[in-house]
Simulated assay, not measured.
Amino acid sequence: MTGALRYLRMYGQLARYTLVRELSFRGNFLVKVSVEVLWLGILLAFYRVVFSKTSMVAEWSEPQYLFFVGCYFAMNGLLETLFLENCNEFSELVRKGDLDFLLLKPVDEQFLVTCRRVDWSTAPNVLMGVGVMIFSLVNMGWSFDAGRLGAFFLLFACGALLAYAFMVLLTATGVWLVRNQSMMELWWLFSSLTRYPREIYMRVAWAEPIGQFFTFVVPFLLVVNVPAQAMVKVLDWRMVAFTVAATGVSLWVSRRFFRRALRAYRSASS
């Protein structure tokens, strides 16, 4: 418990430092936030046009799909705020030898590599996503259900940890590839899968194996689909259990792989 509190305090100080640094360039911060607001507006306008031509998309009504979009936006914003910038910079740390300085510190290496900075310019995405979700729930006349709400928070946390585990796996390849920009582009490719409901892949014969693979083998489709579905559609406790189990396994695998990558690392002095 003492160790956890120590890391929590450390993370708070790191977050405070990056916020002060970000606000030193307020113009740049406001421009980045404005771009994210514009992107959400374009996304909502696109789906409004889609639902003006149909009442359902892959068995999701417009308010349900709007909740899904809000969940995706909040999840993506959370991951970009907490982890993405750090993971993108890992290959540069390896190439320049700056990783040596991080490994010398008496702190867990994975924590320091993946959590040392907070990208505050994408933090408003989380709030905007939450706003879209609340708006959709009001529109559909959702009645309060403590079980569904609790399941949603649990599954949203599991989705974030699943995505983090996958990000760590891609990041660790930088030890061998050094310049792994192409590997990190896979992150954007796979994250785009989470933008659409899983049912889309199940309605076409040739796409169904893709949906099954990214649900049960590389469970990336669980990141947004399962929490959104639990909140506004069917609360499937089997999928809840599977998501929790997949999260635990993914975190364990990513941790082992990251430790294996660090053992293979050759410092700048070697």
Rank of each mutant, 00 (worst) to 15 (best):
Y47T: 14
C71H: 08
M10K: 13
V50K: 01
A4M: 15
Q181V: 12
V232H: 11
N76F: 03
A207K: 14
V249T: 03
A241E: 01
T215D: 06
V126C: 03
P209S: 04
A45W: 12
A268E: 03
P227W: 08
A241Q: 00
G174C: 03
F144V: 15
T81L: 04
L155F: 05
R6H: 14
Y65L: 15
F242K: 08
Q110C: 06
L44M: 14
W188M: 11
R95V: 03
Y201D: 05
M128C: 02
V35H: 11
W176M: 04
L30R: 07
L169I: 13
A165H: 03
T114H: 07
Q212T: 09
G41R: 00
L169P: 01
G174P: 02
R255P: 04
S267P: 02
V35Y: 10
D100R: 06
G70C: 00
Y164K: 13
S121I: 06
W252I: 05
V217M: 05
V126Q: 00
Q212R: 15
F90L: 05
V168P: 00
E92I: 11
M239P: 06
N76L: 04
Y65G: 05
T171A: 13
M239F: 11
R95I: 08
A205L: 15
G12E: 04
M10L: 15
F213A: 04
G12I: 12
C158P: 01
A165Q: 04
F216E: 08
L221Q: 07
M128L: 13
Q229I: 03
F257Q: 05
Y11R: 15
L43D: 11
K32V: 02
L186N: 11
P63Q: 11
E208F: 04
V132L: 04
I200S: 01
G77F: 00
A58H: 11
V113D: 05
T243R: 05
M140D: 12
F135P: 11
R198L: 14
Y201E: 09
P106R: 10
S143P: 09
E92A: 10
L93D: 00
W120E: 07
V253G: 03
G129L: 01
L127D: 01
G131W: 01
E89H: 12
N28L: 10
G3P: 06
I210L: 15
V20L: 13
L149K: 12
T194L: 06
C71T: 14
M128V: 07
L262P: 00
W206P: 00
F166L: 12
A58L: 10
S61W: 10
M183H: 09
R195S: 04
W188C: 06
K53M: 15
V223L: 07
Y11P: 08
E59V: 12
T18R: 07
P219M: 10
V118G: 01
W142H: 15
M133C: 14
T171D: 03
F101V: 06
G41S: 02
L170Q: 08
N88Q: 13
L193Y: 12
Y7F: 13
